[in-house]
Design a protein around this nucleic acid. Structure first.
Lengths: 219, 219
DNA sequence: TGTACATCAGTGAACGCGCGTTCACTGATGTAC
DNA sequence: TGTACATCAGTGAACGCGCGTTCACTGATGTAC
């Protein structure tokens, strides 16, 4: 049941294609092959067979590690939410001159994540994955969401209590704007903008925070 | 080449399924069948064959009217952008007590469109349609975008010229937030929010506009 | 240390399926005479 | 008004394809003795 350390180490260093009859780390290799395929062709174009082929393995072998195609995508998304949550957490707690700066860093981190982990991002948000059918993914996803809401909560302390909107609400606003910027202006569809997604989002968040009274009305 | 008025009228009143050997209005019937299928199963699940079947016709008949599956989706999207632009235009010019109110109405209209025309919306924004491959769709899409930018331009007049952000920019902000709200909080994925998408977006736009100095800092 | 054995991650062949697309055709419709 | 004909929107059979999934199997690996 327990693999030897050597076996695991060997598996780690053999990222995508197997060497002998046994692969050593096929499960993760399949996840990584899927990532590349999804990033290239979108979650629609992704197929179990291609992922298996890219990992140097027969399609049937996939079923030793996953329940099927859906399960494989779900695992990609799960790992994505995990990375996402960690990245957000890091961006928030590390950019800590002020709660405000930390919050802005969180917004930038969102875009950075979408750029750096396109396969994960697509599996998470564009694959039509039903979170209810994959409770383990839903769990990690809500953990990620909590990081965002915690950041919003921290920021909320700096507002006069009587006109504080709920933290969940403006966390949702920032999330929505970030996601919208990614979908509309960072994808390869024809919709062009004269601004980079990063500049666009930063300006947008700035204006929004000013609206909350957290930034001075003039610069 | 020119159909009789009677034939066209008959075709109009016979929306989805043909009566005789000739359909009369198969082209539009296919578009409408596709709309239902896309709304139900997402753009991924949509197939040319099912659309043909729903219209009461052999798959091969589709090729009398469209170049293929892609062309059919593109036409759905094109009609969507057309409706979208009209709706936005109407919302803007009709909600005209003030430029501000008109702009807010535009935001609400965005959500209303996504709710009322889910098949169109999905074909437009979630089908992975490449606008560059369909110049006619790109044209209507940019027309729709211009409506949004025109609304932003009108609003821009009410700001002191020295600290006016470009209209294209805050049009993009509102569009992004609207789109993000639709994708994250109006779809059947597990992500729940304690607020309705409509309330969420209205509050978000309000805060944003306050940040622009277009609303008083306090309510 | 060497041998027998259990484990189980892989193979490879096969399946049924529905897809998009093509092709020669057919039959309803409108028009010319 | 009636008939011959051109048009062209539909049929239906067929295709090749790649998909996800299953199954009995095989062979590499680690372990017990």
């Amino acid at each position: 049941m327990e693999k030897s350390v050597a076996a695991r180490t060997f598996g780690r260093s053999e990222p995508l294609v197997k060497s002998g009859y046994h692969h050593g780390n096929l499960r993760q290799a399949l996840v990584e092959a899927s990532l590349l395929l999804i990033a290239e062709q979108g979650p629609t174009g992704f197929t179990l067979s291609e992922a298996a082929k890219a990992a140097g393995v027969t399609p049937a072998a996939v079923y030793r590690h996953f329940g099927g195609r859906d399960d494989l995508i779900a695992e990609v998304a799960r790992q994505g939410f995990d990375i996402f949550a960690a990245l957000m957490h890091y961006a928030y707690s590390d950019g800590k001159p002020t709660a405000l700066a930390a919050f802005e860093a969180t917004g930038r981190a969102y875009l950075a994540f979408a750029r750096k982990y396109p396969g994960h991002y697509m599996a998470m948000f564009e694959s039509g994955l039903n979170l209810n059918a994959h409770p383990d993914v839903a769990l990690v996803a809500s953990k990620a969401r909590q990081v965002l809401e915690q950041a919003a909560e921290g920021l909320s302390q700096h507002m006069p209590p009587n006109k504080r909107p709920p933290a969940t609400m403006f966390s949702a606003h920032i999330w929505a704007m970030s996601h919208g910027v990614v979908e509309l202006f960072m994808r390869g569809n024809g919709a062009k903008s004269p601004f980079s997604p990063e500049d666009l989002l930063e300006a947008g968040i700035g204006i929004y925070l000013r609206g909350l009274g957290l930034l001075p009305p003039d610069r």
